[in-house]
C-alpha cells in the first residue's frame, strides 16, 4: 500500500524553533527511509509565496498567485511511501524530523478505478 505523508507547519516559524530540524537531519531521514526500500518520493517545498494556483473552468484556465487557500499552516513537504499497513506509515511519519514542530497528515493512496475497455485508455492518451 502507498501512503502520502503531508508535512504541514507554519513556514515563518518552521526553521527558527528550538526543536526545528536542520536540512542535514531531514536529508538523513529521507535517506534512511529510502535505504529501507519504502520511499517512493520525498521532497521539501519552497515557500507558499512561490505558489501559483491553476483552475480550468468551461475550457478556459486562470492562474492566480499564491496557494489555493490561505491557511495558518502550510504544506511544507511530503513523503510518498510504500508501507505494509497504516501503522507502518504512521511510524515512518512520526520519524519525519519536521513532525517535532509541525503536523504530518497520513493518507492512504486511492487506487484509480480504471474502466476495463482498452479503447477508452487509448482515447485518453490520444487527447493528452
Amino acid at each position: 500500500m502507498k501512503y502520502l505523508c503531508l508535512v504541514y507547519g507554519d513556514e515563518t516559524l518552521m526553521h527558527s524553533l528550538p526543536e526545528s530540524p536542520v536540512d542535514d537531519e531531514c536529508h538523513a531521514y529521507g535517506n534512511s527511509v529510502a535505504d529501507s526500500g519504502r520511499l517512493v518520493a520525498a521532497e521539501a517545498l519552497e515557500s507558499v509565496a512561490t505558489a501559483l494556483t491553476v483552475r480550468v473552468r468551461q475550457g478556459s484556465h486562470t492562474v492566480t498567485e499564491g496557494p489555493f487557500a490561505e491557511t495558518h499552516e502550510q504544506l511544507l513537504g511530503f513523503y510518498l511511501v510504500e508501507a505494509r499497513d497504516l501503522n507502518e506509515a504512521v511510524t515512518i511519519a512520526s520519524g519525519i524530523p519536521a513532525a517535532r514542530v509541525g503536523s504530518v497528515e497520513v493518507r492512504p493512496v486511492r487506487e484509480l478505478q480504471l474502466s476495463e475497455s482498452p479503447e477508452s485508455a487509448d482515447a485518453v492518451t490520444a487527447n493528452s
Binding site: 534512511s32 535505504d35 529501507s36 526500500g37 519504502r38 507502518e88 511510524t91 520519524g95
Partner: peptide, 9 residues
Amino acid sequence: EEAMHEAFA
C-alpha cells in the same frame, strides 16, 4: 519494526 525493514532490505 524499522530495524526489521532495514534488515530485509
